[in-house]
Structure formats: C-alpha cells, structure tokens
Design a protein around this nucleic acid. Sequence first.
DNA 1: GCTTGTTGTAATAATTGACATTACATCCAT
DNA 2: ATGGATGTAATGTCAATTATTACAACAAGC
Lengths: 146, 146
Amino acid sequence: MQISSRFTIAIHILACIDTFKDDYKVTSDFLAGSVNVNPVVIRRLLQQLKAAGIVRVTRGSGGAEIAKPLSETTMLDVYKAVDSIENGELFHFHENPNQECPVGRNIHNVLDDKLNQVQAAMENEMRSITIQDIVTETKSYIQKEL
Amino acid sequence: MQISSRFTIAIHILACIDTFKDDYKVTSDFLAGSVNVNPVVIRRLLQQLKAAGIVRVTRGSGGAEIAKPLSETTMLDVYKAVDSIENGELFHFHENPNQECPVGRNIHNVLDDKLNQVQAAMENEMRSITIQDIVTETKSYIQKEL
DNA sequence: GCTTGTTGTAATAATTGACATTACATCCAT
DNA sequence: ATGGATGTAATGTCAATTATTACAACAAGC
C-alpha cells in the first residue's frame, strides 16, 4: 500500500504557513481550504508537527507558525513527525513463517538486513531535501504565474 | 501505511522453491506450509511471478519452479511483479488541493519531482540486490544450524 | 467578564485495501 | 477416468485512512 497522504498534506501545510504568514492569520480553517480536507485533519497534523518542534500553534486566538528555519527541517523530519508508516517499518513482514521449516525460520534474519538497507537508502534521500527547498521552488512557480 | 507482505512472501516463496527443488514437489500447499498462509494466497502470488517470467507453474500435476537464474532476478523485479504498491506510486498525494490557492495549484508539480527522486533512490537500492544473494545467504544460515 | 473565534480531542461512520477462506471448474499424469 | 493440483471467483473479516460532528478549553478584545 501507499504511504499516507498525511505526508504530502503536512508539507503542503508548511508551505502555506510560510507563504501566507505576512498576509493572513493562518488557521486550521484557512489551511483546510487550501488542502481541501476537513479542518480537523489539519489540526491533528499540526499537533504532530508541533510535537516534533516544527511548528507552533496558538490556542484560543488561533493560527500556526513555523517554529524553526525550514532549511533545518528535512522531508525525513516531516515524514517521521506525521507517522507516515507504522512502527517506522516501511515493509510489512509476514507474521508467522513456519519455524519447523529451515527456510521459514531463517528468512526473517536474512531479509531484515536487506529491507533495512533499502529503507535506509530511501530515508537518506529524504534527509537531503529540506522543506525550504520545496517552499522556495513553490514560490518561484508562483512568481512565474504573474 | 506499510508495503504489502506480498513482497516478503514472494521472496520467501522463491527461496523455498530453490532450496527444496531437488527433494520435494513444491506445490502451493507445500509453500503455504512454510509461509503459514492460505494456499490460495500462494497461488495468486505464483501467478504474478509467472506473469513476470520469474517462475513456471505446472497445472494439473502441480509444482512450481524457477524460470530463470535467480541471479538475474532483483528485489525490484519481485517488488514490481507482485504489485507491492498501487499504480507504482509509493506516495499517496492528497487528491484535490485547492486550485484557487497559489500554493494549492503549484505544490503538486514541485513535490512530485522530490517524491520521484526519493522513490528512485529506494528502487535503485532494490535493483542492487538479487534474489540469489538472499537465497545464498539463507542457505548458509541453514548450514550453520547443522 | 462575557463574547467570539479558534484549538484540542473524543467519538463515530464510510470507505478502502489486505488477507483469509470456501468452493469449484480446469487441467495433467498415471 | 481418477486423483491431486492449479486458476480464479466470491465472500467475509479486519485494520487503517479519511471525513465529520460535537464540544470543552482557551485567548484576546470589547
């Protein structure tokens, strides 16, 4: 199955907060309008991003803001913050291989190494891309529209 | 969410077929016993592996065999063969960003590049590991048990 | 201090995909 | 032809995603 859209939504949210911070109060309703999902979905994501120290959210009066430079937040940080996969394991290993079978009782050990290796390659790539990269590029696309 | 266990099961199946080819008739029931799932699950996977030219399956009299050297089959080949993710897209992009919003109508373009880049890193790693690597290592684990 | 607008979060439901299982037609070798 | 397999449709269960309603907690302005 695919990696939850929480991930792309979270990045979308961060791009919005940064882009509109000077012109609007960026509330969960505002963000929900841009992403096109229910505001509650946004609030839950903001909570997760807050727990990771990526954003600040003000209760009562409302609004979200970036907590630290987006150049210091990588795709991997966001990916982990919003729990894009379960238990941090990208691959779902079948649960009960037969321990009576020589292959069944050894395949897990062998495969785990390889799967971790693949997962690491993916996470390293994510670590190399910052949210600032994405926001900067998005703003340049917006400029080109004018 | 995680990548379907079809992927690890398929690799387990291939390891079994190769390991037991000389001593048993490797049927879907036999494989189901080692993996510990329903034989129908195995048969479906075998169909997908067959369609990818990785195994041969004999109807009627029964049994599965490897169709080409496992050193020529990579983890990526198996991954694609059994449809581990949907539409070949690892990431699920939220469907309807608001086109009225400057960020909403541009985020897709920007992000797609980055997501493809991450997915490519992962697939390249998978391409570098053959099923033969895995089977060889498994057999050496089995040897050590004796 | 009360009102207003917002966040935080629980509860519930709809939808979807994964996986399990039954059933049976089709097929091959003996 | 028969016995043991495969091929595949149909059905059911379960878990995760996402949507949505509801409301308490809260901050700021009047």
